[in-house]
Nucleic acid binder design. Structure first.
Lengths: 349, 349
DNA sequence: CTGAAAGCGCTAACAT
DNA sequence: ATGTTAGCGCTTTCAG
């Protein structure tokens, strides 16, 4: 009734446990005949290896831990997860997944749990760059770490991020070229409780990058009096802020949002106010998704190479696993501005 | 340099390995003083338990395997994954995830791998109901299995599905009440290579359920000459079929799609042909998503209780893990038709 | 080419 | 209350 072990195989084949192991794992010196004999016996009694025992012996689990924030309105982490799982599998690794919901304490515990399960390495979307003791090499048992989407300075880990700065800057320029001069920027950030205009400390390098890109675009293009709204990533609060914004005397002609949640909030608010995108208000956001392209008009976005990022994350992690002396890298992947109908051309022809 | 083990803790505390274990795992008889002594020692040398060794001993891994199709245009499996991971974690389990891309061979291998990693149970979205030898109890080492989204008859597993039949039927009735009589149904199915009107063998119970629901709605409401299109889940092929459909002399006034991919295809095609939803063509689909509600007009959908499904899947699985004699259940969760602006009211007032 | 035996880190009988 | 010992299933020296 119990699952057959390698002992059972050995018994069935009339050889020692050691020989059975050699035959099944194709290593060491063993005669062709015995190997076949053992394999036949294993097959007959329905033996399957116990990878836990093998891990115990080998000191590795062929398992990667993925600690990711659960942002399921944002296609980015979904696709990243899929890419990581698939690439890992293609390289003989499985993936243990944990969500953090952007919560540092949860992140801490998740990493701890994964380490106790003896993962060979970690891929983490760090919830913040400010606190990182739990990511330090000695506190992660010197297990290799790759951070994705965000950079944490000073933790001896390879990071794979995207150059959001450039495309966000470019987005502003694009808008200017279509004669937009009254611009608003809606930034989702977990570091504020209520929407505010003043720039708070931002929670991670990616948001920072986007904001800086927008700001540079504003400077480059000599945009006057841009409106900045830093909002919690909460639909209601965002909608409330957008409603106020759009009801001012001189509302912006275009809104740039830092993520999909905020873009959705703009769309909902526009609908409620009876405003049309792009005739009444133009919109640009970050992270492409099928629906952004399928709706009419399509929504302009900063597109990020998520599949490549995922693949690279796994490959780099495995390199680190196989070579503990490999130096960490800082990889920044290019992004791309996809112009679509949601940016109205205000030029008079 | 190596990670401290329980032996090191024992040595540091000046007690035996057994005592150290008792102290750390809070079991057996042990004095308060020794417990504290051991815990302090463990803390001091930075001991963390090795769960692989513990698993080896205990015969369980506190890990569940999730085998899911990777459909990242469909919010359903994303949210299901998140729900499963979170619920598992709340119950002290981690989740090993594998994608199958609806491929049976991949599914086979994935299950095999997860079993070798000694998961305590499996949650599977079975790619087909037709072949299930790999899901049979004896071929999964009698490990508990919960299938979600789809039912596979004859495999001694708990299944958690949704009542898509009812809401799909209701959707047709809703359309009829808004005076639609010329209807088309676009069904994504992996069992055809080219779009066809004839009903093929469908790949799983869920699609079957939706088609049957639509068909019943057609009969209930005495809809004449409905158009059925069974298309591969491929944007190009679907768009081509939709284009043909919309260019006929008497095009339908409404299209029902079986999933998000097909709904996106309808939207894209409508855009290309310069048709407006809902003025030129109405649309209803299955599985809600934030954007379906945020765009103008909102797209009507059959909404499924994905969070509840995910939670239930984990809870039922854990019940099975804890009680091997528990009988499998067949759970069907209710669905809900969300009427939105994408169904035009054709009634003359 | 094969077998005997040790040991990965942990827990749980069984002694004391 | 604590220590001794065996063993989970596997791989890998070391002998032969």
């Amino acid at each position: 009734m119990k699952k057959p072990t390698i002992n059972d195989v050995a018994a069935a084949a009339g050889v020692s446990r050691a020989t059975a192991s050699r035959a099944l794992s194709d290593y060491g010196r063993i005669s062709e005949d015995t190997r076949n004999l053992v394999k036949a016996a294993a097959n007959k009694i329905g033996y399957t290896p116990n990878q836990v025992a093998r891990s115990m012996r080998a000191g590795n689990t062929k398992t990667i831990g993925l600690v990711i924030i659960a942002d399921f309105t944002n296609v980015f982490f979904d696709r990243a997860t899929k890419g990581i799982v698939d690439t890992a599998r293609a390289n003989g690794y499985e993936v243990l997944i944990t969500n953090t919901d952007e919560n540092l304490e949860v992140e801490r515990e998740a990493i701890q749990t994964l380490l106790e399960k003896q993962v060979d390495g970690l891929i983490v979307v760090p919830s913040t760059a400010a606190v990182h003791d739990h990511l330090d090499a000695q506190n992660r048992g010197n297990k290799p770490l790759v951070t994705i989407d965000r950079m944490v300075p000073g933790i001896n880990a390879t990071s794979i991020t995207t150059n959001d700065f450039e495309s966000c800057e470019k987005a502003v320029t694009e808008a200017k070229q279509k004669n937009h001069t009254n611009m608003a920027f809606l930034i989702a950030t977990s570091t504020v409780k209520e929407p505010q205009e003043e720039k708070p400390v931002l929670q991670n390098s990616t948001i920072e990058d986007r904001v800086n890109g927008f700001m540079n675009g504003v400077i480059d293009n000599k945009i006057k009096n841009p409106t900045w709204i830093y909002s919690p990533d909460d639909p209601d609060k965002a909608e409330q802020a957008i409603t106020q914004l759009l009801k001012t005397k001189n509302p912006p002609t275009i809104i740039f949002t830092s993520n999909n949640d905020m873009a959705l909030a703009v769309m909902r608010t526009a609908n409620k106010l009876g405003l049309n995108i792009p005739n009444d208000i133009s919109l640009v956001t970050v992270d492409d998704s099928q629906w952004l392209e399928a709706i009419a008009p399509g929504i302009a976005v900063v597109e990020r190479p998520v599949d490549e990022l995922a693949k690279l994350a796994v490959e780099k992690l495995i390199e680190h696993i196989n070579n503990k002396t490999k130096k960490p890298e800082k990889i920044v992947l290019p992004t791309n501005l996809l112009t679509r109908g949601s940016i109205k051309n205000l030029k008079k022809n």
